[in-house]
Design a protein around this nucleic acid. Sequence first.
DNA 1: CCGAGCATGTAACACGTTACATGATTGC
DNA 2: GCAATCATGTAACGTGTTACATGCTCGG
Lengths: 177, 177
Amino acid sequence: MSRASKTELAVLGAISVQPMSGYAVRAAITETLGHFWSESFGQIYPTIARLEGEGFIERDADGKTSGSTYRLTRAGRRRLVTLLHEPIPPAPPRNGTMLRLFFGGLLGAEACRGILDDARLRAEEQLAALEAIRDEVQAEIATDPDARYRLLTVLAGQHSARAQIAWVEESLELLAM
Amino acid sequence: MSRASKTELAVLGAISVQPMSGYAVRAAITETLGHFWSESFGQIYPTIARLEGEGFIERDADGKTSGSTYRLTRAGRRRLVTLLHEPIPPAPPRNGTMLRLFFGGLLGAEACRGILDDARLRAEEQLAALEAIRDEVQAEIATDPDARYRLLTVLAGQHSARAQIAWVEESLELLAM
DNA sequence: CCGAGCATGTAACACGTTACATGATTGC
DNA sequence: GCAATCATGTAACGTGTTACATGCTCGG
């Protein structure tokens, strides 16, 4: 995963599902990959321009006057599979919640409990959102076996959110002692 | 947490524990905050220069010829506490493992199992590392009550790593069906 | 004396977001 | 017709890493 690759991978992946515009790519990433990925227009449009220049995607020759619909070329599909095979180096950790909590002695127990409550709230919201998505994806598996993989990413989110909640509970007990 | 703040917070936090050089700040962050935070020299040195210019840290007047030892000024301590009180906006999610897994249909079950095995391996290593740190920190609590807060960050890492492992187990079973 | 580690700093680059500018389409 | 949404693009900015250049200090 050397150059210009993570955004490229996300964009190619989105377009591989079905041909769409840059705007729709953004929407697809926000809605469908939203719980583990994000891209902004400022990244997406230049990437699309480059991918088109390199022949990995091409415009649909439909009659629309405004907006372009892009679809993968054969080279684009090969490129996508290649990128998927390359490991993505893990990002250096940067967890603001932990940074603040680490220096909790300077903050006071009150404020720290606030941080923990916030963390729990966010995890609970996420958990609820994933619950719904999970049902959808589970239903898709019947018609599309590849939906299994999508299910895995939802499960990961659920495990992570539940772990977060359990951690908050344990932490609050510890602080109460 | 508006401007120039996360690195500033980490640097002030490190120096608040005890006076040290920029090089030592880097080492402290890597070793002690390593499982949830990271900073590079390219960030640390300019930040230290700025903090000194703003009067939040000052050089120790010791007799050393090479290297400077910085300590917090009174304003610096106030600044640190202020920064700790400000919430840190959560970073947009970007999980490369999930991005690859989501398009697992194009990758094949074999490669996906490889991704999962990797994820489990990393989580197990992390878990082992945290186990040792946890014992250390737990021992410190007897003499330093503030060590509790440090313990919380270790617990978070453990919860997260265990959740990751459980997710991999469940995922491998799902793929094997 | 020499190599390992301590120490400082910067320049180039990569990546990503935000804000802005601009216009087409469509449903009410 | 007008508002919401679809759609495209860019410029400015912030942030962060990597690689490089440089020199000190101390133990063996």
